[in-house]
Design a protein around this nucleic acid. Structure first.
Lengths: 108, 108
DNA sequence: TTATCTGTTCATATATTTGTGAACTATTAA
DNA sequence: TTAATAGTTCACAAATATATGAACAGATAA
């Protein structure tokens, strides 16, 4: 029997993708680092909430922070994060299309 | 402001990756479909638990089922799921290596 | 018919995640 | 010094996810 520890660690990293706000942040950071207040301006909501979500992402290793005296800059730890995220989006899109076809064939 | 609906749907799909058992199932199915009892034999645990996790994965669209009179065969809905999953594993491995280096430099 | 095999569904207890607002810290500006 | 800016941390309530075992359903075998 295999050791399950790696599955647990792997799931921890994947959990960091499993929230709408965190997906939105990954999308935003695809083009490069952004500081906290810029992210907040785009996503909206409470700063405490955003801060907590960003810290989940940093702790899981999908984001990194660069602290400047005036601003905290967040960026993706690897382009693989953005790539994985966009693959999952493609899976979503494919599924939505399948559903659409199904609906059409039922209504026909 | 963008519509957040897509982020919610996207996160739903990503949530399906966010559990150790579900990661293990994705790993198992990379080489092709397997029936419920074979998956259970490898992963261990209660059949009710596995059944519920598989149904989460099917509902989110990352797995599909083929029902035979004697067995339910599960498979990945797309190779993109396996690809995204393995990218996230690479992110994990990279992070573990970084941590290791950090530890070494502290202990040096 | 009655068993048996293959799973799913359900109820429930527990654990984890999430959102909120207040309090707090650190840095810069006046 | 005081005020302002930028963000983190904390406590708590509410919402979700998870594991468990019992009950259930459908197909096949005896």
């Amino acid at each position: 029997m295999l050791d399950k520890t790696v599955y647990k660690l792997h799931a921890e990293v994947c959990k960091a993708l499993a929230h709408p706000l965190r997906i939105e942040v990954i999308d935003l950071l695809q083009t490069g680092e952004l500081c906290f207040s810029d992210i907040l301006e785009t996503t909206g909501g409470l700063k405490s909430n955003l801060s907590q979500h960003l810290s989940v992402m940093v702790d899981s290793g999908i984001l990194k922070v660069r602290k400047d005296s005036r601003c905290n800059y967040y960026s993706l730890s690897s382009s693989k994060v953005a790539k994985a995220c966009s693959l999952m989006r493609e899976v979503l899109i494919e599924n939505l299309k399948k559903q659409q076809k199904l609906h059409k064939s039922i209504l026909k």
